[in-house]
Design a protein around this nucleic acid. Structure first.
Lengths: 245, 245
DNA sequence: ACCTGAACACCGTTCAAGT
DNA sequence: ACCTGAACACCGTTCAAGT
Protein backbone atom coordinates (compact mmCIF):
# COMPACT_ATOMS: atom_id res chain seq x y z
CA UNK A 1 0.00 0.00 0.00
CA UNK A 2 2.64 2.53 1.02
CA UNK A 3 6.21 2.80 -0.16
CA UNK A 4 7.70 1.03 2.83
CA UNK A 5 6.92 -2.55 1.81
CA UNK A 6 9.49 -5.04 0.64
CA UNK A 7 10.20 -4.61 -3.02
CA UNK A 8 8.67 -7.39 -5.02
CA UNK A 9 10.93 -9.97 -6.54
CA UNK A 10 9.99 -11.67 -9.74
CA UNK A 11 12.81 -14.14 -10.11
CA UNK A 12 11.23 -17.43 -11.17
CA UNK A 13 12.52 -20.81 -10.18
CA UNK A 14 11.52 -24.31 -11.11
CA UNK A 15 11.17 -25.73 -7.62
CA UNK A 16 14.73 -26.99 -7.45
CA UNK A 17 14.10 -28.88 -4.22
CA UNK A 18 11.31 -31.18 -5.29
CA UNK A 19 12.16 -31.00 -9.00
CA UNK A 20 14.05 -33.63 -10.99
CA UNK A 21 17.51 -34.44 -9.75
CA UNK A 22 20.41 -34.43 -12.19
CA UNK A 23 21.81 -37.90 -12.61
CA UNK A 24 18.45 -39.62 -12.36
CA UNK A 25 17.37 -38.79 -15.90
CA UNK A 26 19.17 -36.75 -18.54
CA UNK A 27 22.76 -35.74 -17.95
CA UNK A 28 23.52 -33.01 -15.42
CA UNK A 29 24.18 -29.63 -16.97
CA UNK A 30 26.47 -26.97 -15.56
CA UNK A 31 28.43 -27.17 -12.38
CA UNK A 32 27.74 -30.19 -10.17
CA UNK A 33 26.00 -29.56 -6.87
CA UNK A 34 27.92 -29.28 -3.69
CA UNK A 35 24.87 -28.51 -1.63
CA UNK A 36 22.05 -31.07 -1.76
CA UNK A 37 18.75 -29.23 -1.28
CA UNK A 38 17.17 -32.24 0.41
CA UNK A 39 19.98 -32.35 2.90
CA UNK A 40 19.56 -28.62 3.41
CA UNK A 41 15.87 -29.06 4.29
CA UNK A 42 16.62 -32.06 6.49
CA UNK A 43 19.22 -30.07 8.38
CA UNK A 44 16.84 -27.17 8.87
CA UNK A 45 14.23 -29.61 10.11
CA UNK A 46 16.54 -31.17 12.65
CA UNK A 47 17.51 -27.78 14.06
CA UNK A 48 13.90 -26.74 14.35
CA UNK A 49 12.88 -30.04 15.96
CA UNK A 50 15.68 -30.03 18.47
CA UNK A 51 15.91 -26.34 19.30
CA UNK A 52 12.77 -24.62 18.05
CA UNK A 53 12.01 -22.25 15.23
CA UNK A 54 13.93 -19.41 16.86
CA UNK A 55 17.16 -21.39 16.55
CA UNK A 56 16.88 -21.72 12.80
CA UNK A 57 18.97 -19.35 10.77
CA UNK A 58 20.32 -19.39 7.27
CA UNK A 59 23.80 -18.97 8.67
CA UNK A 60 23.41 -21.88 11.04
CA UNK A 61 22.17 -24.25 8.34
CA UNK A 62 24.98 -23.17 6.05
CA UNK A 63 27.56 -23.69 8.75
CA UNK A 64 26.33 -27.19 9.56
CA UNK A 65 26.57 -28.06 5.90
CA UNK A 66 30.03 -26.60 5.53
CA UNK A 67 28.63 -24.10 3.08
CA UNK A 68 27.94 -20.37 3.01
CA UNK A 69 24.67 -18.62 3.88
CA UNK A 70 24.15 -17.38 0.35
CA UNK A 71 24.38 -20.85 -1.16
CA UNK A 72 21.00 -21.64 0.39
CA UNK A 73 19.39 -18.83 -1.55
CA UNK A 74 19.88 -20.81 -4.66
CA UNK A 75 17.21 -23.24 -3.54
CA UNK A 76 14.85 -21.07 -1.53
CA UNK A 77 13.64 -17.51 -1.99
CA UNK A 78 13.97 -16.61 1.66
CA UNK A 79 13.98 -18.00 5.17
CA UNK A 80 10.19 -18.35 5.28
CA UNK A 81 10.32 -20.67 2.30
CA UNK A 82 12.92 -22.86 3.96
CA UNK A 83 10.74 -22.89 7.06
CA UNK A 84 7.72 -24.03 5.09
CA UNK A 85 9.71 -26.79 3.45
CA UNK A 86 10.72 -28.20 6.81
CA UNK A 87 7.08 -29.10 7.33
CA UNK A 88 6.97 -31.56 4.43
CA UNK A 89 7.08 -35.09 5.65
CA UNK A 90 6.28 -34.28 9.24
CA UNK A 91 2.85 -35.89 9.33
CA UNK A 92 4.32 -39.11 7.93
CA UNK A 93 5.87 -39.84 11.32
CA UNK A 94 2.43 -40.25 12.86
CA UNK A 95 0.53 -43.41 11.96
CA UNK A 96 -3.02 -43.13 10.79
CA UNK A 97 -5.20 -44.09 13.73
CA UNK A 98 -8.26 -46.32 13.87
CA UNK A 99 -11.29 -44.12 13.33
CA UNK A 100 -14.96 -44.66 14.18
CA UNK A 101 -17.31 -45.46 11.29
CA UNK A 102 -20.04 -42.98 12.17
CA UNK A 103 -19.25 -39.83 10.16
CA UNK A 104 -19.98 -37.38 12.97
CA UNK A 105 -17.83 -39.26 15.47
CA UNK A 106 -15.19 -39.75 12.80
CA UNK A 107 -15.07 -36.03 12.08
CA UNK A 108 -14.44 -35.23 15.74
CA UNK A 109 -11.86 -38.00 15.98
CA UNK A 110 -9.87 -36.71 12.99
CA UNK A 111 -9.93 -33.17 14.33
CA UNK A 112 -8.78 -34.46 17.71
CA UNK A 113 -6.00 -36.38 15.99
CA UNK A 114 -4.82 -33.24 14.19
CA UNK A 115 -4.80 -31.46 17.50
CA UNK A 116 -2.94 -34.29 19.10
CA UNK A 117 -0.11 -34.64 16.62
CA UNK A 118 0.51 -30.92 16.30
CA UNK A 119 0.48 -30.69 20.10
CA UNK A 120 3.44 -33.07 20.12
CA UNK A 121 5.44 -30.92 17.72
CA UNK A 122 4.56 -27.39 18.80
CA UNK A 123 7.30 -25.82 16.68
CA UNK A 124 5.12 -26.32 13.62
CA UNK A 125 2.66 -23.70 14.88
CA UNK A 126 4.93 -20.86 13.84
CA UNK A 127 5.20 -22.31 10.38
CA UNK A 128 1.50 -23.08 10.06
CA UNK A 129 0.88 -19.42 10.90
CA UNK A 130 2.15 -18.72 7.39
CA UNK A 131 -1.13 -20.19 6.25
CA UNK A 132 0.15 -22.81 3.85
CA UNK A 133 -0.52 -26.50 4.07
CA UNK A 134 2.74 -27.84 2.69
CA UNK A 135 2.78 -31.43 3.87
CA UNK A 136 1.15 -33.94 1.54
CA UNK A 137 1.14 -36.48 4.34
CA UNK A 138 -1.36 -34.34 6.23
CA UNK A 139 -3.88 -34.20 3.41
CA UNK A 140 -5.66 -37.37 4.43
CA UNK A 141 -6.99 -35.51 7.48
CA UNK A 142 -8.44 -32.75 5.35
CA UNK A 143 -9.94 -35.39 3.07
CA UNK A 144 -11.51 -37.18 6.02
CA UNK A 145 -12.99 -34.03 7.49
CA UNK A 146 -14.51 -32.98 4.18
CA UNK A 147 -15.75 -36.50 3.53
CA UNK A 148 -17.38 -36.74 6.96
CA UNK A 149 -18.96 -33.31 6.65
CA UNK A 150 -20.47 -34.29 3.30
CA UNK A 151 -21.66 -37.57 4.78
CA UNK A 152 -23.31 -35.59 7.57
CA UNK A 153 -25.31 -33.68 5.00
CA UNK A 154 -23.31 -30.50 4.54
CA UNK A 155 -22.95 -29.02 1.07
CA UNK A 156 -19.43 -28.93 -0.41
CA UNK A 157 -19.19 -25.20 0.32
CA UNK A 158 -20.30 -25.63 3.92
CA UNK A 159 -17.93 -28.56 4.33
CA UNK A 160 -14.97 -26.47 3.27
CA UNK A 161 -16.01 -23.72 5.65
CA UNK A 162 -16.57 -26.20 8.47
CA UNK A 163 -13.06 -27.49 7.88
CA UNK A 164 -11.66 -23.99 8.12
CA UNK A 165 -13.57 -23.28 11.32
CA UNK A 166 -12.38 -26.47 12.96
CA UNK A 167 -8.83 -25.83 11.88
CA UNK A 168 -8.90 -22.24 13.16
CA UNK A 169 -10.12 -23.45 16.53
CA UNK A 170 -7.56 -26.25 16.73
CA UNK A 171 -4.80 -23.84 15.82
CA UNK A 172 -5.86 -21.19 18.35
CA UNK A 173 -6.21 -23.76 21.09
CA UNK A 174 -2.71 -25.07 20.43
CA UNK A 175 -1.21 -21.59 20.50
CA UNK A 176 -2.66 -20.94 23.95
CA UNK A 177 -1.64 -24.35 25.21
CA UNK A 178 1.89 -23.62 24.17
CA UNK A 179 1.73 -20.22 25.84
CA UNK A 180 0.52 -21.83 29.07
CA UNK A 181 3.31 -24.39 28.92
CA UNK A 182 5.87 -21.65 28.49
CA UNK A 183 4.43 -19.68 31.37
CA UNK A 184 4.65 -22.76 33.56
CA UNK A 185 8.29 -23.22 32.61
CA UNK A 186 9.20 -19.58 33.07
CA UNK A 187 6.88 -18.42 35.83
CA UNK A 188 8.51 -15.21 37.01
CA UNK A 189 6.45 -12.70 35.08
CA UNK A 190 4.02 -9.95 35.94
CA UNK A 191 0.54 -11.09 36.73
CA UNK A 192 -2.18 -10.10 34.31
CA UNK A 193 -5.61 -11.60 33.88
CA UNK A 194 -7.35 -12.89 35.96
CA UNK A 195 -5.20 -11.58 38.83
CA UNK A 196 -5.56 -8.01 37.61
CA UNK A 197 -9.27 -8.05 38.46
CA UNK A 198 -9.82 -6.81 42.02
CA UNK A 199 -12.67 -5.99 44.35
CA UNK A 200 -12.66 -2.45 42.98
CA UNK A 201 -13.83 -3.82 39.66
CA UNK A 202 -16.97 -5.29 41.19
CA UNK A 203 -19.14 -2.49 39.81
CA UNK A 204 -17.93 -2.71 36.23
CA UNK A 205 -16.90 -6.34 36.00
CA UNK A 206 -19.19 -8.14 38.44
CA UNK A 207 -18.96 -11.60 36.86
CA UNK A 208 -15.19 -11.54 36.56
CA UNK A 209 -14.79 -10.23 40.12
CA UNK A 210 -17.00 -13.07 41.31
CA UNK A 211 -15.33 -15.80 39.30
CA UNK A 212 -11.68 -14.74 39.14
CA UNK A 213 -10.40 -16.91 41.99
CA UNK A 214 -11.83 -20.02 40.38
CA UNK A 215 -10.93 -19.02 36.81
CA UNK A 216 -7.68 -20.98 36.63
CA UNK A 217 -9.27 -24.00 38.23
CA UNK A 218 -12.08 -24.01 35.66
CA UNK A 219 -9.62 -23.45 32.83
CA UNK A 220 -7.51 -26.38 34.04
CA UNK A 221 -10.40 -28.75 33.33
CA UNK A 222 -10.56 -27.65 29.75
CA UNK A 223 -10.86 -30.58 27.36
CA UNK A 224 -10.32 -29.79 23.71
CA UNK A 225 -12.16 -32.86 22.46
CA UNK A 226 -15.32 -31.88 24.36
CA UNK A 227 -15.18 -28.44 22.81
CA UNK A 228 -14.56 -29.88 19.37
CA UNK A 229 -17.59 -32.05 19.85
CA UNK A 230 -19.70 -29.01 20.68
CA UNK A 231 -18.33 -27.03 17.73
CA UNK A 232 -19.04 -29.87 15.31
CA UNK A 233 -22.50 -30.10 16.76
CA UNK A 234 -23.12 -26.45 15.98
CA UNK A 235 -21.62 -26.65 12.51
CA UNK A 236 -23.66 -29.68 11.52
CA UNK A 237 -26.96 -28.35 12.84
CA UNK A 238 -26.48 -25.08 11.02
CA UNK A 239 -25.39 -26.71 7.80
CA UNK A 240 -28.17 -29.25 7.51
CA UNK A 241 -31.10 -26.90 8.10
CA UNK A 242 -31.16 -23.71 5.97
CA UNK A 243 -31.11 -23.57 2.18
CA UNK A 244 -28.09 -21.30 1.75
CA UNK A 245 -24.57 -22.43 0.93
CA UNK B 1 13.64 -30.46 31.52
CA UNK B 2 17.13 -30.65 30.04
CA UNK B 3 20.06 -28.38 30.68
CA UNK B 4 19.64 -26.32 27.54
CA UNK B 5 16.87 -24.03 28.81
CA UNK B 6 17.34 -20.41 29.67
CA UNK B 7 18.62 -20.02 33.17
CA UNK B 8 15.91 -18.76 35.46
CA UNK B 9 16.07 -15.24 36.73
CA UNK B 10 14.67 -14.44 40.13
CA UNK B 11 15.23 -10.70 40.26
CA UNK B 12 12.03 -9.24 41.62
CA UNK B 13 10.70 -5.86 40.65
CA UNK B 14 7.78 -3.81 41.82
CA UNK B 15 6.18 -3.14 38.48
CA UNK B 16 7.99 0.15 37.95
CA UNK B 17 5.89 1.03 34.90
CA UNK B 18 2.43 0.95 36.39
CA UNK B 19 3.62 1.53 39.95
CA UNK B 20 3.53 4.86 41.82
CA UNK B 21 5.35 7.71 40.14
CA UNK B 22 7.82 9.82 42.15
CA UNK B 23 6.51 13.33 42.62
CA UNK B 24 2.91 12.26 42.92
CA UNK B 25 3.17 11.05 46.51
CA UNK B 26 6.24 10.84 48.77
CA UNK B 27 9.48 12.45 47.65
CA UNK B 28 11.53 10.78 44.96
CA UNK B 29 14.50 8.82 46.25
CA UNK B 30 17.78 8.25 44.46
CA UNK B 31 18.73 9.49 41.06
CA UNK B 32 15.93 11.21 39.10
CA UNK B 33 14.63 9.44 36.03
CA UNK B 34 15.84 10.37 32.62
CA UNK B 35 13.81 7.65 30.92
CA UNK B 36 10.07 7.76 31.53
CA UNK B 37 8.75 4.18 31.42
CA UNK B 38 5.39 5.34 30.09
CA UNK B 39 7.08 7.13 27.25
CA UNK B 40 9.14 4.02 26.65
CA UNK B 41 6.00 1.90 26.26
CA UNK B 42 4.30 4.56 24.13
CA UNK B 43 7.30 4.65 21.81
CA UNK B 44 7.35 0.88 21.51
CA UNK B 45 3.65 0.96 20.74
CA UNK B 46 4.05 3.54 17.98
CA UNK B 47 6.79 1.52 16.32
CA UNK B 48 4.72 -1.62 16.44
CA UNK B 49 1.60 0.12 15.15
CA UNK B 50 3.36 1.80 12.29
CA UNK B 51 5.81 -0.88 11.27
CA UNK B 52 4.75 -4.15 12.83
CA UNK B 53 6.11 -6.32 15.61
CA UNK B 54 9.18 -7.31 13.60
CA UNK B 55 10.34 -3.69 13.58
CA UNK B 56 10.41 -3.43 17.36
CA UNK B 57 13.79 -3.76 18.97
CA UNK B 58 15.22 -2.67 22.27
CA UNK B 59 17.90 -0.79 20.41
CA UNK B 60 15.43 1.04 18.23
CA UNK B 61 13.29 2.16 21.18
CA UNK B 62 16.40 3.30 23.05
CA UNK B 63 17.64 5.24 20.06
CA UNK B 64 14.33 7.04 19.57
CA UNK B 65 14.42 8.03 23.24
CA UNK B 66 18.01 9.20 23.07
CA UNK B 67 18.91 6.50 25.56
CA UNK B 68 20.84 3.23 25.52
CA UNK B 69 19.42 -0.25 25.02
CA UNK B 70 20.32 -1.34 28.52
CA UNK B 71 18.40 1.50 30.15
CA UNK B 72 15.17 -0.20 29.11
CA UNK B 73 16.05 -3.28 31.11
CA UNK B 74 15.53 -1.30 34.24
CA UNK B 75 11.81 -1.25 33.57
CA UNK B 76 11.20 -4.53 31.81
CA UNK B 77 12.68 -7.98 32.24
CA UNK B 78 13.03 -8.62 28.53
CA UNK B 79 11.67 -7.75 25.13
CA UNK B 80 8.59 -9.95 25.55
CA UNK B 81 7.56 -7.96 28.58
CA UNK B 82 7.87 -4.70 26.69
CA UNK B 83 5.83 -6.24 23.90
CA UNK B 84 3.08 -7.24 26.30
CA UNK B 85 2.97 -3.77 27.80
CA UNK B 86 2.40 -2.20 24.39
CA UNK B 87 -0.98 -3.90 24.41
CA UNK B 88 -2.27 -1.94 27.38
CA UNK B 89 -4.64 0.77 26.33
CA UNK B 90 -5.20 -0.59 22.85
CA UNK B 91 -8.83 -1.56 23.31
CA UNK B 92 -9.64 1.90 24.67
CA UNK B 93 -9.40 3.29 21.15
CA UNK B 94 -12.43 1.29 20.11
CA UNK B 95 -15.78 2.50 21.42
CA UNK B 96 -18.10 0.03 23.06
CA UNK B 97 -20.76 -0.80 20.49
CA UNK B 98 -24.52 -1.08 20.90
CA UNK B 99 -25.30 -4.68 21.71
CA UNK B 100 -28.49 -6.70 21.40
CA UNK B 101 -30.35 -7.46 24.63
CA UNK B 102 -30.93 -11.16 24.01
CA UNK B 103 -28.01 -12.96 25.69
CA UNK B 104 -27.36 -15.42 22.91
CA UNK B 105 -27.32 -12.72 20.24
CA UNK B 106 -25.29 -10.52 22.54
CA UNK B 107 -22.67 -13.22 23.06
CA UNK B 108 -22.19 -13.62 19.32
CA UNK B 109 -22.09 -9.83 18.87
CA UNK B 110 -19.36 -9.38 21.49
CA UNK B 111 -17.30 -12.18 20.00
CA UNK B 112 -17.75 -10.61 16.56
CA UNK B 113 -16.66 -7.27 17.98
CA UNK B 114 -13.50 -8.79 19.44
CA UNK B 115 -12.78 -10.31 16.07
CA UNK B 116 -13.45 -7.02 14.38
CA UNK B 117 -11.21 -4.81 16.47
CA UNK B 118 -8.28 -7.22 16.48
CA UNK B 119 -8.69 -7.57 12.74
CA UNK B 120 -8.01 -3.85 12.44
CA UNK B 121 -4.78 -4.08 14.43
CA UNK B 122 -3.29 -7.38 13.31
CA UNK B 123 0.07 -6.71 14.95
CA UNK B 124 -1.48 -7.59 18.32
CA UNK B 125 -1.80 -11.23 17.24
CA UNK B 126 1.88 -11.85 17.82
CA UNK B 127 1.62 -10.43 21.30
CA UNK B 128 -1.62 -12.22 22.15
CA UNK B 129 0.19 -15.44 21.22
CA UNK B 130 2.08 -14.98 24.48
CA UNK B 131 -1.21 -15.93 26.13
CA UNK B 132 -1.61 -12.97 28.46
CA UNK B 133 -4.55 -10.62 28.51
CA UNK B 134 -2.78 -7.42 29.52
CA UNK B 135 -5.23 -4.72 28.52
CA UNK B 136 -7.76 -3.75 31.19
CA UNK B 137 -9.80 -1.98 28.53
CA UNK B 138 -10.53 -5.31 26.91
CA UNK B 139 -11.92 -6.92 30.03
CA UNK B 140 -15.46 -5.73 29.42
CA UNK B 141 -15.67 -8.13 26.50
CA UNK B 142 -14.66 -11.08 28.65
CA UNK B 143 -17.18 -9.92 31.25
CA UNK B 144 -19.93 -9.73 28.65
CA UNK B 145 -19.19 -13.16 27.22
CA UNK B 146 -19.20 -14.77 30.65
CA UNK B 147 -22.33 -12.87 31.65
CA UNK B 148 -24.17 -13.92 28.50
CA UNK B 149 -23.08 -17.53 28.84
CA UNK B 150 -24.40 -17.60 32.41
CA UNK B 151 -27.62 -15.94 31.26
CA UNK B 152 -27.96 -18.66 28.64
CA UNK B 153 -27.85 -21.29 31.36
CA UNK B 154 -24.22 -22.39 31.38
CA UNK B 155 -22.51 -23.11 34.69
CA UNK B 156 -19.61 -20.82 35.67
CA UNK B 157 -17.11 -23.54 34.73
CA UNK B 158 -18.71 -24.11 31.34
CA UNK B 159 -18.90 -20.37 30.75
CA UNK B 160 -15.18 -19.99 31.30
CA UNK B 161 -14.50 -22.85 28.94
CA UNK B 162 -16.92 -21.49 26.36
CA UNK B 163 -15.05 -18.20 26.52
CA UNK B 164 -11.77 -19.96 25.90
CA UNK B 165 -13.17 -21.90 22.97
CA UNK B 166 -14.59 -18.79 21.35
CA UNK B 167 -11.36 -16.92 21.89
CA UNK B 168 -9.26 -19.74 20.45
CA UNK B 169 -11.42 -19.78 17.35
CA UNK B 170 -11.35 -16.00 16.94
CA UNK B 171 -7.60 -16.00 17.35
CA UNK B 172 -7.02 -18.82 14.87
CA UNK B 173 -9.32 -17.24 12.32
CA UNK B 174 -7.46 -13.95 12.56
CA UNK B 175 -4.09 -15.63 12.10
CA UNK B 176 -5.22 -17.23 8.86
CA UNK B 177 -6.85 -14.03 7.64
CA UNK B 178 -3.59 -12.25 8.16
CA UNK B 179 -1.73 -15.02 6.35
CA UNK B 180 -4.12 -14.75 3.41
CA UNK B 181 -3.68 -10.98 3.31
CA UNK B 182 0.09 -11.38 3.24
CA UNK B 183 -0.10 -13.94 0.50
CA UNK B 184 -2.25 -11.58 -1.54
CA UNK B 185 0.32 -8.81 -1.07
CA UNK B 186 3.29 -11.01 -1.83
CA UNK B 187 1.96 -13.54 -4.30
CA UNK B 188 5.13 -14.94 -5.83
CA UNK B 189 5.46 -18.11 -3.76
CA UNK B 190 5.33 -21.81 -4.43
CA UNK B 191 1.86 -23.27 -4.71
CA UNK B 192 0.79 -25.67 -2.00
CA UNK B 193 -2.71 -26.73 -1.04
CA UNK B 194 -5.14 -26.98 -2.80
CA UNK B 195 -3.09 -26.72 -5.99
CA UNK B 196 -0.87 -29.61 -4.91
CA UNK B 197 -3.78 -32.04 -5.25
CA UNK B 198 -3.88 -33.51 -8.74
CA UNK B 199 -5.81 -36.08 -10.71
CA UNK B 200 -3.31 -38.69 -9.54
CA UNK B 201 -4.61 -38.26 -6.01
CA UNK B 202 -8.13 -39.25 -7.02
CA UNK B 203 -7.74 -42.70 -5.49
CA UNK B 204 -6.47 -41.58 -2.11
CA UNK B 205 -8.06 -38.16 -1.84
CA UNK B 206 -11.26 -38.39 -3.85
CA UNK B 207 -13.11 -35.55 -2.14
CA UNK B 208 -10.21 -33.15 -2.37
CA UNK B 209 -9.57 -34.05 -6.00
CA UNK B 210 -13.23 -33.40 -6.74
CA UNK B 211 -13.46 -30.12 -4.85
CA UNK B 212 -10.03 -28.56 -5.25
CA UNK B 213 -10.87 -26.24 -8.13
CA UNK B 214 -13.73 -24.71 -6.19
CA UNK B 215 -11.93 -24.70 -2.83
CA UNK B 216 -10.74 -21.09 -3.01
CA UNK B 217 -14.12 -19.93 -4.21
CA UNK B 218 -15.86 -21.61 -1.27
CA UNK B 219 -13.28 -20.29 1.16
CA UNK B 220 -13.76 -16.75 -0.17
CA UNK B 221 -17.38 -16.78 1.03
CA UNK B 222 -16.28 -17.56 4.55
CA UNK B 223 -18.09 -15.39 7.09
CA UNK B 224 -16.69 -15.48 10.58
CA UNK B 225 -19.89 -14.28 12.23
CA UNK B 226 -21.86 -17.15 10.73
CA UNK B 227 -19.32 -19.60 12.06
CA UNK B 228 -19.31 -17.94 15.48
CA UNK B 229 -23.05 -18.28 15.53
CA UNK B 230 -22.76 -21.99 14.84
CA UNK B 231 -20.05 -22.46 17.46
CA UNK B 232 -22.08 -20.65 20.10
CA UNK B 233 -25.04 -22.79 19.16
CA UNK B 234 -23.03 -25.93 19.83
CA UNK B 235 -21.55 -24.63 23.07
CA UNK B 236 -24.91 -23.60 24.48
CA UNK B 237 -26.69 -26.82 23.55
CA UNK B 238 -23.98 -28.90 25.14
CA UNK B 239 -23.78 -26.79 28.27
CA UNK B 240 -27.47 -26.63 29.04
CA UNK B 241 -28.22 -30.34 28.75
CA UNK B 242 -25.90 -32.68 30.69
CA UNK B 243 -25.23 -32.59 34.43
CA UNK B 244 -21.44 -32.39 34.30
CA UNK B 245 -19.47 -29.12 34.66
C1' DA C 1 18.49 4.15 41.82
C1' DC C 2 19.27 4.73 37.41
C1' DC C 3 22.04 4.70 33.48
C1' DT C 4 26.28 4.03 30.24
C1' DG C 5 29.73 1.60 27.19
C1' DA C 6 31.86 -2.07 25.56
C1' DA C 7 31.55 -6.55 24.33
C1' DC C 8 29.64 -11.20 22.94
C1' DA C 9 27.51 -13.82 19.85
C1' DC C 10 24.69 -13.52 16.65
C1' DC C 11 20.99 -12.10 12.47
C1' DG C 12 18.81 -11.84 6.85
C1' DT C 13 19.96 -10.25 2.67
C1' DT C 14 22.37 -7.62 -1.35
C1' DC C 15 25.85 -7.40 -4.47
C1' DA C 16 29.72 -8.41 -7.34
C1' DA C 17 32.71 -11.82 -8.39
C1' DG C 18 34.48 -16.46 -9.19
C1' DT C 19 34.48 -21.36 -11.30
C1' DA D 1 24.60 -23.31 -12.83
C1' DC D 2 26.15 -23.01 -8.57
C1' DC D 3 28.73 -21.00 -5.05
C1' DT D 4 31.91 -17.59 -2.38
C1' DG D 5 33.29 -13.38 0.32
C1' DA D 6 32.71 -9.11 1.81
C1' DA D 7 29.71 -5.88 3.30
C1' DC D 8 25.40 -3.54 5.13
C1' DA D 9 22.52 -2.77 8.60
C1' DC D 10 21.08 -4.69 12.12
C1' DC D 11 19.80 -7.97 16.71
C1' DG D 12 19.06 -9.36 22.55
C1' DT D 13 21.49 -9.56 26.43
C1' DT D 14 25.53 -9.77 29.98
C1' DC D 15 28.67 -7.53 32.61
C1' DA D 16 31.28 -4.09 34.98
C1' DA D 17 31.42 0.49 35.78
C1' DG D 18 29.84 5.20 36.56
C1' DT D 19 26.92 9.04 38.91
Amino acid sequence: MSGTEKTEKTKKMKNPVTGGKPGTAGRPVGRPRRLDPEVMVATARRIVEEEGVAALSMRRVAKELGSTPMALYHYVRDKDELLMLTLSGTAAAFPRPELPEDPRERLVAVAAHMHDIIGRIPWVLDILALGELTDRNALWMVEEIIDCALACGLSPARSVRAYRTIWSYVYGDLVFRRAAARRAENPSRREFFPEMVTGKDRAELPRLAEIKDRWREYAADYETVEELDAIVDGLLRRGTRGAKG
